[in-house]
Design a protein around this nucleic acid. Structure first.
Lengths: 201, 201
DNA sequence: CGCATTTTCGACTGACGGTCGAAAATTGTC
DNA sequence: GACAATTTTCGACCGTCAGTCGAAAATGCG
């Protein structure tokens, strides 16, 4: 029983690493079991299917990201910075972007898609809380917060994932964020700086 | 040569129908050739791969949708209505939603994803033109139009595709559209009516 | 008709996700 | 320590699927 849990963790770790470096579609179950040094049957003793493995890998990732985001939530930094930090804590980390970004785009759609809904489910409540905080402070003013926050996440996903974006995209995103949340123009300007920093890396 | 083109069209039509009713992943090349009554080799005489077939099927769809959208562009209706109509002309038609929407969500990710970029490429220029028209008329006021228009499409895709949305989503979407384009509050209110009509069907 | 080109055929391949019955290791019990 | 029950591991095997290939049939052309 103890041993079983360890094995499963080991398999999840291997699968995680392979999925994000080579992509889900490009990783075969045979690849995973070879790396782990086990037989096919053992793998299927722990997982119902390859897809279920993906599901658990994603849950793992989201859980870690949510952990990080919760830290930010309770940190003592200005609300607008919290928003930016939480959103970016749910973005794929550099290692998760894989070596060949272009390859991933087509070959890893399923992983992306499955990640999205789970990410929204985790991130929307946290961001909603922050926005409420901002409303209490008087820097935001809006209703239907979860819906607004989700739209922010959807757009930021489109823009920032896979690196594809221009300065104009950032400008519009900032503008949109301010207006969606009912903030004063300029409230989110600092984001521009964050992004340049991120790109340098 | 003539015959070849006809065959290819026939295969594309069959593939299109099967992809949207059963999903891309759930349609095997064998399914397609059986339906068409041809041999495997014949199929691969016309297509490099199954994925290339998907690509061409999507191009077909987008082309038809673009055609419809262009009609709207040159129609004599108010600019806000044009925007709504063009966006909705690029939405998956009822038949394209397949019988079992839930199934599609997981099983048809690749098709969805490939459609997205092509859809943006086709729709953004058209919508940009309409927004410019609106600016000339003085009902809109904004810069970076293509970026703004893309965000509108991204959000509307998240909200309206697959049916998942509430009245609050629509409210926020309307609010966001007006603010993104710099329109007066209420300019887009009529959208609420359109959606109810759509839902009834 | 004879020759070249286009189109069609279907057996075959290799990869892959998944199954299964049985062996090996582990654990608990007296 | 013996022994049975349970957990874990094994790997041969299966069905499906995308894609290949060489050869045959159909078509076009002088």
């Amino acid at each position: 029983m103890r041993k079983g849990e360890k094995r499963k963790q080991e398999l999840l770790t291997i699968a995680y690493r392979m999925f994000i470096t080579r992509g889900y579609e490009n990783t075969s179950v045979d690849d995973i079991i070879e790396e782990a040094g086990i037989a096919k049957g053992t793998y299927y003793y722990y997982f119902e299917s390859k897809e279920q493995t993906l599901e658990e890998v994603i849950d793992m990732m989201i859980k870690a990201e949510t952990e990080a985001a919760k830290q930010i939530l309770s940190a003592s930094i200005p609300v607008p910075q919290k928003i930016a930090a939480i959103i970016s804590s749910f973005r794929p980390s550099p290692e998760e972007q894989s070596i060949e970004g272009a390859l991933m785009q087509t070959e890893n759609t399923l992983m992306h898609d499955k990640t999205k809904e789970k990410l929204y489910a985790a991130a929307v409540p946290l961001l909603t809380e922050v926005v409420k905080e901002g409303i209490k402070e008087g820097i935001f003013s809006c209703n239907n917060i979860p819906e607004r926050v989700r739209m922010l996440l959807v757009v930021s996903g489109d823009i920032f994932d896979e690196g594809r974006f221009t300065g104009r995209d950032v400008d519009v995103f900032i503008d949109m964020t301010e207006k969606l949340l009912g903030a004063e123009a300029g409230t989110m300007d600092f984001v521009r700086g964050l992004i340049r920093k991120q790109k340098r890396k």
